[in-house]
Amino acid sequence: MLKIDHLTFFYPHRIKPVIDDFSMELPAGGVYGLLGRNGAGKSTLLYLIAGLLTPKSGDVTFAGVNTRLRMPSTLADIFIVPEEFNLPSMPLENYINLYSTFYPNFSREDMERHLSTFELPTDIHLGALSMGQKKKAYMCFALACNTPLLLMDEPTNGLDIPGKAAFLRFIASSMTDDRTVIISTHQVRDINSLLDHVVIMDNRSMLLNESMAEIRRRLAFVTTDNPSLVERAIYAQPGVQGVNVVLPNDGSFDTDVDLKTLFELSATAPESLAAIFPNPQLPPKYEN
């Protein structure tokens, strides 16, 4: 289990913290979506979870061990796919042979399966790949390592349209009960169907931390022209096919969660969201 305990982090020469007294617990298993505007601290939070940054106060523990200590056993349990990264210029086969030995759960069969999902051959040279292809290859390796915690920062950035579709299949096919995947993104449409749980960050705090099932149970996302529904909505935004509305769900709706609308609701009317999902992390100005 991942536990974030009163985490505060400042970038050098900045007066305001990027993350301020942030706490969260994520039980093992499931795909978590970390959503937020640019500069909300999503990537920073992922780096702090991975132990790549030192917090000013608080700590992050994974399976009871502080990740900042960067113990080999903890590092073997965590894999991070950053938005941008450099890979050594060598054939993929050599890369796998050299790096996979550090991950005890690495599976070559999984690697080949993931590569075929992205339609990548095994005899490629990492130095000759485009950024998108490099990302696909690295994500394949990340999943094949079978680490209990996988962190992904904007994984769909740089992927082509078939690549984004393959990404959904790729994550869904490799999920197990004890594996946790945290995906930080603002490309919410790309991962809408994938998430089990949503965390929305803003203003250095957490606006929402709920499972998709609970959001579906309490909220309904409807596109309508019906004025009475629009009037009842806690959020309404005119769209091409009608008005996109968010309604409190009294049990009469069974709709999918529209992450884009949910995110807009959290950005424009956080107090409405707080009324439905009371959250101890919410800044005082949003409390009812």
Partner: peptide
Amino acid sequence: IPSMMLPAS
């Protein structure tokens, strides 16, 4: 990031 995350002390 890839270098620091490599599982070695």
